[in-house]
Simulated assay, not measured.
Amino acid sequence: MSQPLPRGGTLLLAVIAGTAIANNYSVQPALAAVAADLGVPLSVIGLVPTAALTGCMTGFALLLPLTDHLAPNRLLTAQLTALAAALTLAAAARGPVLLLAAYLLIGAAASVAAQAGNIAGRHAPPGRGGTGVAVVAAGMSAGILLSRLAGGALTDALGWRRMLLVFAALALLGALAAATLLPRQRPHTDSGYRATLKALPPLLLHQPGLRRAVATGGLWYFAFNLVWIALTLVLAQPPHSLGPTAIGLYSLAGLLGFAALPFAGRLTDRYGPHTVITAAMLAAAAGTALLATGLGTPPVTALGLALFDAGCFAAQAANQSRVIALDPARSGSLSSIYLAVYFTVGALGTAVAAPLLDAVGWQSTALTALSASLLAAVLGRR
């Protein structure tokens, strides 16, 4: 039996997840300032987000399984301290090589956000695991949505180096809170960490539920990246010809997804993840249909994005709850496989968005995403 979280523990994990994952995105508005300060081309500094994403995927694969071996207070304290150290290293960088190396470490340490969600599900009271995962997912969503705004504002006010130090201080505060408040019980396991890593690939072969979760989640994350990348490109072109600020305002539609997550968690606990995933994917498909047909009308576009984002966010929280429930004692390993494949499939959506948009146009691109959402709805019932 896992030691329960203290009162407010789930909220603490949500805050930790949000402030940690924000570090993968907060530097993006400052890239031009970083390039000018270091005296290197913007094309070189543009590799920083790629380094952060690469580090994060590595963290999912190698560090998330540690939730099956270490007590939550020790694990999150160590990883948040490492995150603060990596941010401090980036703030002190005088050249691109050290900065890129630091962002590989930042991305890896920021995978603590996924560990927080896993811990919330594992240590939730009986019948409340879906709610715990959803609350932490809401924190992650808030961190992603607000990170660029916070990073840009802090850079304007303090400069990019001090902006990174502010985020380092937040990581240290999170480490202190984790050390003080999170459970100290070490998970019981019969295998060592190295054996756990060796056992990761066969999990897909031996866990049909994990395969279904990976296939379902991969479909909507493919659709999510496909829609957002293609939409950004098409809105910048005639006849829309919107500027970056106007396009960026559409991201506020994602706030509906953030607001819907706790509700989706309660529905998952009451009706099960399969029902929530199917309903969420139907909502995402409806949003995609609006985007395919109503892009010339801003309110329709905003409504379409709100439904699309809310559907994808709710489905993701329910799907992660399903993965954790497969085997709570090995939930870190299962989540590691799930997220690694999930992000890989999502990266395909990012890669094909521009070529597909050029080849078949916006409506056919949106219909491709709609088809992926409907297929995910069908798979979500199984």
Rank of each mutant, 00 (worst) to 15 (best):
H240S: 12
P4C: 02
L374V: 09
V133E: 11
I324V: 15
L100P: 12
R382Y: 13
L210A: 01
L256E: 02
L303A: 14
Q316K: 00
A377M: 07
D358K: 12
D309N: 10
T19Q: 11
G55L: 05
L12I: 07
R212C: 08
G152I: 09
V15I: 14
V27I: 13
T365F: 04
R74P: 00
G311E: 03
A30F: 09
A177E: 03
L158M: 09
L87N: 10
A30E: 06
S241R: 14
A259L: 15
N118A: 14
V133K: 01
A109H: 00
L303K: 02
A30Y: 04
I144S: 03
R122P: 08
P273H: 11
A354Q: 15
A113G: 14
G55N: 09
P273E: 05
L176D: 00
G332R: 04
I21F: 13
L210G: 00
T10K: 02
G248F: 09
G117C: 00
F308G: 07
P201T: 00
A169K: 04
L11C: 05
L305E: 06
N225I: 03
V378G: 10
A120G: 04
L64I: 01
L375K: 06
G304C: 11
N319H: 12
A113N: 13
P65L: 08
A354Y: 01
L370S: 07
L200P: 08
L76Y: 05
G218W: 11
I45H: 03
L307D: 02
L219P: 08
S335G: 05
A284V: 01
A86S: 15
L100A: 12
V166L: 00
A310C: 03
T77W: 02
A314P: 04
G130D: 10
L348V: 15
L47Y: 05
M281E: 09
G121R: 07
